[in-house]
Amino acid sequence: MRVVSIGHIADSYALIKLSPLSGSLPEGIQPGQFAQIEIPDSKSTFLRRPISICMADYDADQIWLLVRNAGQGTSHMVNSSVGDIYNVLLPLGHGFSLPSKQGDSVLLVGGGVGVAPLLYFGKVLFEQGYKPVFALGARSAKDLLLLDEFKKYGPVHVSTEDGSAGEKGLITCNSVFASEISDIACCGPTPMMKAVAGIAASRGINCEVSLENMMACGLGACLCCVEDTADGNVCVCKNGPVFNINQLKWQI
């Protein structure tokens, strides 16, 4: 796929929009699925990089990837230029489920760069008549990503650890959690997801989380990225990355 635009956000993030070299996007990309990106000409970034799909824009035939510069592979991506070509495998994995009733109050909880798949999920929910609410957390105001995009699909509640935007503190302390919630979709750092899962479990809220265990193949073949679940060790890349918390053996 070809980079058609790249927008840099703060010091270390980029929103990369990619279009197929020919033809159109594969049908039926689900929110929560991911892409495997081959980093060209690099011996140290030998494996593909799994990046969640931030948006599948079928009108423009684009996918959006929100990338944080966290290592050599993502550094290469963040420093891409328009016209660069990436070999991309997509869509992979199993995404978020739609809540059972349209009247349900769905809270989408994201932390840091983990907000990425919630944008596409929020859009799909909005278009299908749900009323998604976003709770987005970050270290500080500069790490809050794509807020204007999220606002297109629902109210956005923000927390920052240093108080530079929204409520001060962790997202799990945000006042939005005091409201009535029927479903939670969550993606972010593992400690955050575990805290959210704890809240959901204690209140009987249906909750899905998106895991990011280290992966190799992305196809369910190598069994490297397994998570211990009610069904034993299963591949995060194939059976996930999105799991209902009642499938996981987390201590919460």
Binding site: F46, C222, C224, N233
Partner: peptide, 21 residues
């Protein structure tokens, strides 16, 4: 098989410890 983590990328390769799952 073995508990996670089972894999780490290394220069031009990877280490795995899947353990015959």
């Amino acid at each position: 098989g073995n508990p996670a983590p089972r894999m780490v990328e290394t220069p031009s390769g990877m280490l795995n410890a899947v353990g015959l799952q």
